[in-house]
Design a protein around this nucleic acid. Sequence first.
DNA 1: TCTGGGGTCCTAGGACCC
DNA 2: TCTGGGGTCCTAGGACCC
Length: 398
Amino acid sequence: MPRYIAHLDMDAFYASVELLRYPDLRGQPVVIGGGRRHQPALLADGTRRYARLAEYAGRGVVTTATYEARALGVHSGMGLMKAAALAPQAILLPTDFDEYRRYSRLFKAAVAEIAPQIEDRGIDEIYMDLTDVPGAQDAVGGDPLGGVRAVARAIKENVRRATGLTCSIGVTPNKLLSKLCSDLDKPDGLTVLTEADIPARIWPLPARRINGIGPKANARLEALGIRTIGELAACERQWLVEHFGPSYGAWLHEAAHGRDDRPVVTHSEPKSMSRETTFERDLHPRADREQLGALFTRLCEQVAADLARKGYVGRTIGIKLRFDDFRTVTRDQSLPSPTDDARLIRHAAGQCLKRVTLDRRLRLLGVRVGGLRRKEEVARPGPPVAAEPSAPYTLPLF
DNA sequence: TCTGGGGTCCTAGGACCC
DNA sequence: TCTGGGGTCCTAGGACCC
């Protein structure tokens, strides 16, 4: 029996949620990003006044853009100042993560009514295992994929009914291919394919589209004359291993042939939690010492609050600094026992900070707690346990 | 016009233990 | 006096993803 793995990606998620609130913006280039300063203003006549990208000044980046804004060359991750140069008249809205999280829960619940085997991949996408969903294995009118296609359509319809939003779905035998396919027919798309379709549908795509080939690996591939997934598939495994190492090289070979046996993981525990902030202007370690210290303490308090709210403690405390030249350094330190105490975190983070040479202005400061455990599963620090009676004799190794 | 914030995983060297 | 080797933990950095 074939596996039917699906990947669902909400279409321009943040921007689409905003359009539900501000339907008058539908059809216009809209960009989401930056701080709260460009909140729409409600005018006396009941209409709203929106900020234009041209009015923005600061260090924010584009979080999402509507398809109309993308047509002007604006993409997520782009600096807002650069986006403003491309599309000065585009509407700028601040990000409202609470609202996006609310819609995220709504769409996931709608999916779960039909396909309960869900792997969370962030706020706007999920994998689903449709293999055991009733009807997924049925042929429809001689089409062996008719059953899964109908299931996927039902999921899309349920999401739309619950949220008013559209999504795109890819259904294939594995996660790697499904992720690729959910992107082939956006927005409001549905792409179903089997292994037999790989040469015609997958191999013409740029290698960069594979989840796991980022800007660095792609640049190295291009330098070797490899641009498409098909060109990658044509490479000998051994040759890829020689150029990219045993692990990544072998994976590149598998990926290019559309092979991936990772399961859909329906539950996972967090490994770390962090808070970081980029300053409006670069701060000097000495001249702005007080401000930095206050910021540092606040980050520690925020991570501590995040840990407590979610019921975790952690024992590896780390800091992250970014200098004005964009160089990033991290330092961490493991404590004897896990904590969610802001003062303990602040102290350990302070120790970490002492190990960094502060010879430049800073643009970012971050605090992270790793090595997480569920708080209720960690033994209370009780009275010291009596030492084991020392062994009378240690077995020699040889 | 310089590049957010929240994560995961991998690699690699050194300490330390058996 | 020098020689092995495996395992785990700790730390730093980097690639990648949403």
